[in-house]
Amino acid sequence: MIDTTINFALLLFLAATAFSILRRTTLFSVVMLSGVFSFVSALLLVHLDAVDVAFTEAAVGAGISTVLMLSTLALTARHEAPASRSRALPLIVVFLTGLALIYGTLDMPHFGDPSAPVHTHVAPRYITATATEIGIPNIVTAVLASYRGFDTLGETTVIFTAGIGVLLLLAGTIREPTGLRITAMDHHLVLRVVTKVLIGPILLFALYVQFHGDYGPGGGFQAGVIFAAAFIIYALVFGLEAARRAVPGRAVRWILAAGVLMYGGVGVVSFFFGKNYLDYSALGATATAGQHLGILLVEFGVGMTVSAVMVSTYYAFAGQNRPIGDEEW
């Protein structure tokens, strides 16, 4: 009962947030509310036992997406223009789509029903066989990196594509370094000290998340985002130039590509042992040792690409900046 109540409460809160986003015209609050939406979703995801997903949603939806959207606002506009066209047609289309979906729920297995097809076909093997076939405790990591490891290679490629795309779209318009650190906030003593204190633990935490993904929630994707967050904080406080001196754009671009190559390359290694693509069992003395090593390597590749994409995307957006004064926010 308590579970149901928490679910309903969170869902209602999400609905309230979504409606509020719909009605507001100040883009700053729209973006912040969208961060809230992601964060509350993450809470709900934890409640639904999807800890890995919640972790990612919090890091991406509430973290990276919000930062990118705020950067965009700084470069574009603060307010939404008043409506100039009729919204009757969209409303009807959306309403009918929703009705169709509700109709579709009528034959759905009930929420939480353990006898639903999703729990009785395909998935049981992951739960029962992960221990013997892969040999790691986190089933999500096992499915992600091994059983459906090819999807994850695709996913890494998707984020790589986005990284390349942002470079293609924005890199050409990055302003020349002026030598002035106008966007930095390093004249704030408190910020400066807090950042310096924070960055170490954040990087350490990223490494923990990276290499502990086999055992608990985490993995390359989450680690990559956290790793990038440390850099973005640094860049926010000490300025883009300082961050670029620490990690130059070209190095980021190399890591970006190297991560995908690493993932794809591990699969190619399987060929040389006469195995199918991405069959890690050949990589170690025993099948589980091979799986373990393979998962470690591909997760590392994912972490590299993800962190590099996040950093390079941030560089590209921040590089556009006309200086934002403190008082404008």
């Binding site: 290679l153 790589f160 390349i164 671009r253 590509a257 190297a258 190619v268 060929f271 693509y277």
Partner: peptide, 20 residues
Amino acid sequence: YHLPILQIVVPLIAAPLSAF
């Protein structure tokens, strides 16, 4: 034997290589 996967993996790996 590996032709089906090579169909995809060849361009997929060449893409990050070409980024260099």
